[in-house]
Design a protein around this nucleic acid. Structure first.
Lengths: 129, 129
DNA sequence: TCGTTTCGGCTACAGACGTAATCGAAGAAT
DNA sequence: ATTCTTCGATTACGTCTGTAGCCGAAACGA
């Protein structure tokens, strides 16, 4: 199995991703503050959040800075990088690297709203320059 | 953790997906034939393929039919269903369910070729009716 | 009929993941 | 100073995933 290293090489699991979203939204923050944002929805307890945070630190996608006796966490990778990587992975794996079939798929499964269509058209026009 | 059931409820792992691709390409086929198609690329041995196949059978996404003393396998779910589900999951998880941001992301990370753009434009025009 | 080959089925096992309890040090309160 | 409280760090553990070995039954060849 492919086993890559460094920023974005180490895969971020789904649970870890939930933590990343919180950090991207606001940072640096403490473990307790992260918990305030996710423990409710995901039904987690603080230890769980701390474990996820330390795994993210290990993977070098989250950094820490001491704040008195506690730690504050902040993401070391940009959300757009992560999102871009995941998107490309999906396109590669399921659509042979071509984005058009993905688009067709979303269209077919009615995952495209009228707004989406309009927005995409706008983007297309803009790219045409 | 959410634990869904039935066709497409049970998650298909990446390795399992590789096997599904072979089955979607041609079926019904035997375990050995599946191996012929993937063991080379993924550097697997037959036991591995058999394990993956039986897990897929357990998950009820692959069916078997006896062929003399051996078994032939065939997918029980359509590729488009799987692909559609995965696509929607990604869009939900990373883009709040909106497809437009995904499109923008792909555009920004230069994952869109000229051909893709043309194709998507064509699709858009067609949908406009 | 007896060994040999061929399968599928069960077993294995390490690493990742989800989820959490416990431990130990450093501060805070008294 | 002694205890109480907070944190991060360490440890735990069941499940899932990747990868594969072993076993027993069936089929085949002799």
């Amino acid at each position: 199995m492919a086993k890559r290293k460094n920023a974005l090489g180490e895969r971020i699991s789904e649970a870890e991703h939930a933590v990343m979203e919180v950090l991207w939204d606001k940072n640096p923050i403490s473990a307790a503050e992260v918990c305030d944002q996710v423990c409710a929805q995901r039904d987690w307890s603080i230890p769980t959040v701390k474990t996820l945070l330390s795994r993210l630190v290990q993977k070098e996608v989250v950094g820490t800075e001491p704040d008195g006796r506690k730690f504050l966490y902040r993401p070391l990778i940009a959300r757009s990088d992560y999102v871009g990587g995941e998107s490309r992975r999906l396109v590669d794996r399921l659509f042979g690297g071509r984005a058009a079939p993905l688009f067709a798929q979303l269209a077919e499964s009615e995952a495209l709203t009228e707004d989406d269509l309009a927005e995409i058209e706008a983007l297309l026009r803009e790219m045409r320059k």
